[in-house]
Write a protein that binds this DNA or RNA. Structure first.
Length: 248
DNA sequence: AAGAAACGCAACCGCGGAGGG
DNA sequence: ACCCTCCGCGGTTGCGTTTCT
């Protein structure tokens, strides 16, 4: 089954776009707008399939695209959103003005996944330490090591039979003894499993609604901070003030 | 200096959903 | 109700560049 390929290869250009093609596409869209990509390709005189034109425009030529490195704040937000949404790159990109889903996906696959793997290893080392060290450790989102939110999420996960991914990457995670270890040792010191699960569950719904809402990027970021503080207070009363300092 | 390995990123592929005829 | 086209998405590939040995 499935769709047939959108364009026959014989008469189409493939591979990298030339400066001339970029100009033709840009000029056409400036005049006619972004509609009917198949027509755009044909009418602009480009030997490209419509989807290729669309991708080129959305990921590279669009005037509002932000170039340059992902900032630490953006990285934090990506990790946060990925934790909630999984690989829904377009939704994540929607919360990062000027960034494309392709860019975020690439960034995740090349940079963040590696960081999280390292972070997981670090966490496994940490978990083997006495539990009072774990609960008193500082939060750090950017190194992916051990936020309070993550701790709560891990506990939530164990209680919900891995409904949610742990630590941002479901492909990399599997049910582990380490998670149970956290559950047995951390949760007993703070709140009941049910309390924390419930708290996180409602926070999750809250965040999901936020994602679907029209809250602007910077406001959304602040709300994320607010949300993190709530989760932090649920655990031990600490806050993420160090992150607040990085607000734009 | 040269080859190998790792990385970064643009581009392509194939699927599913929406909507029109 | 069905078929077809178009669009948008996530996954994957390929290749140029950078770093390592």
């Amino acid at each position: 089954m499935g769709r047939r390929p959108r364009c026959t290869k014989e008469e189409m250009n493939n591979g990298p776009w030339t400066a001339e093609e970029d100009k033709m596409l840009t000029d056409y869209i400036k005049i006619h707008g972004e509609r009917k990509w198949c027509n755009v390709a044909r009418k602009a005189g480009l030997k490209r399939c419509g989807n290729s034109c669309r991708l080129r425009w959305l990921n590279y030529l669009r005037p509002d695209i932000k170039r340059g490195n992902i900032s630490p704040a953006e990285e934090d937000l990506i990790i946060r959103l990925h934790r909630l949404l999984g690989n829904r790159w377009s939704l994540i990109a929607g919360r990062l003005p000027g960034r494309t889903d392709n860019e975020i996906k690439n960034y995740w696959n090349s940079v963040l996944r590696r960081k999280l793997i390292n972070g997981k290893q670090h966490m496994q080392n940490t978990i083997l330490r006495p539990s009072n060290e774990i609960t008193s450790s500082t939060t750090s989102v950017s190194n992916g090591a051990k936020t309070n939110a993550v701790t709560c999420k891990m506990i939530f996960e164990t209680s919900r039979t891995h409904e949610l991914e742990t630590f941002g990457s479901n492909a990399l995670e599997e049910p582990s003894k380490e998670v149970s270890f956290v559950n047995d040792n951390v949760i007993n010191e703070s709140k009941s499993k049910e309390d924390c699960s419930q708290n996180f569950s409602s926070s999750f719904n809250y965040m999901d609604e936020l994602l679907m809402s029209g809250v602007s990027g910077s406001d959304f970021w602040k709300l994320c901070m607010f949300y993190d503080n709530i989760v932090a207070r649920c655990n031990n009363g600490s806050t993420n003030d160090h992150l607040d300092k990085r607000l734009p």
